[in-house]
Each structure stands twice: as structure tokens, then as C-alpha cells.
């Protein structure tokens, strides 16, 4: 079957079988709105001082992302441009997300929306939403 080597998929075949057993796909969920609704993947945590949100949104121009807080809901939105394909190119695998995205995170009541910071590093957007001073546990000195 010499002609088989001319088939494009043979040029860059994958070890699917080996992978499937161990690997998990980021953000896979059978949502009625499809996978795009789950992009980017989010991790959310908190400390007594702040709510920490990590969005895994690689390859972005920070100018093309927006973080908004309104009525206790944080919205992250933006657009990821598709890769411009060179002429006569053939796409063998096309899994990377492209297009507009939007995700929302409900915040607790005690946040200070005026002191939010956002930092984009290595393709992860880290948003820190501080809690109001009064809400933080304070140690009262006993005299």
C-alpha cells in the first residue's frame, strides 16, 4: 500500500491510544451551548484577603481581553483570532479555540470592586479581587 503514505493523516499520525487512557481534556463538558462556552478554562480560589481567578487563555493580546465587575459578577470576555493559514496549506488538526469568548464568575458580597488587579503572564490571566478590610478576620489584642 505505497499510496497510503501520500495520505495527509499519515504524515502526522498521533498516538491517540496511549494518550486516551491518561489524559483529560481541559474544560470538556457536554454543554448544550457546546465547548466554546467553556473557553477559557477557569480556576477560582480564595484567601481571607482576596478572591483569585485564573483564566487559561493563551496567545492573547491583553488589549483584546476585558474584565468587568458589575453587581457582584465578574465577566471575562475577548476574542481570539484564528491562525492565518498560508496559501495552499492544509489543516490536519484544528482544536485550538478561535472566536469570541465570555465567562462569568459570581463574587462574594465582601469584595472591593475598586481595587481589582489583572495580570497576564504565560497565557494565564490572573485577576485578584480583594475583600474589604472589614471582612477579613482580625486578631483582637487582649490587654
Amino acid at each position: 500500500m505505497i499510496y497510503r503514505s501520500l495520505l495527509p493523516r499519515d504524515l502526522f499520525a498521533e498516538f491517540e491510544r496511549l494518550q486516551n487512557e491518561f489524559d483529560r481534556t481541559i474544560g470538556f463538558s457536554p454543554s448544550i451551548r457546546g465547548a466554546a462556552q467553556r473557553y477559557p478554562a477557569l480556576n477560582v480560589g480564595s484567601t481571607p484577603a482576596a478572591v483569585e481567578i485564573y483564566a487559561f487563555v493563551p496567545g492573547m493580546d491583553p488589549e483584546r481581553m476585558e474584565v468587568q465587575i458589575e453587581k457582584g459578577v465578574l465577566t471575562l470576555s475577548g476574542e481570539r483570532s484564528p491562525v492565518p493559514a498560508p496559501e495552499q496549506a492544509m489543516t490536519h488538526i484544528g482544536e485550538r479555540f478561535a472566536g469570541r469568548f465570555r465567562r462569568v464568575v459570581s463574587l462574594p458580597d465582601d469584595i472591593d470592586a475598586g481595587a481589582v488587579t489583572a495580570q497576564y503572564r504565560d497565557g494565564v490571566l490572573h485577576v485578584r479581587v480583594p475583600r474589604r478590610e472589614a471582612a477579613q478576620p482580625r486578631r483582637i489584642a487582649i490587654h
Binding site: P8, L11, F12, Q19, D23, R24, T25, I26, P40, A41, F56, V57, P58, G59, V83, A85, P86, E87, Q88, A89, M90, T91, H92, I93, G94, E95, R96, F97, D122, G123, V124
Partner: peptide, 22 residues
Amino acid sequence: LRPAVDVIEDAGGITLLADLPG
């Protein structure tokens, strides 16, 4: 985790793009 990739072939070779946030 298994990163999402794009694999694009042109006359000169293959370009592989992999999302590796973080």
C-alpha cells in the same frame, strides 16, 4: 493534560501550534 493543537501543513513543512497556558 492534553493540550489543544493545530497542525497545518504547507509545501515546505508542518507548523504545530499548541496551547500551553501557564
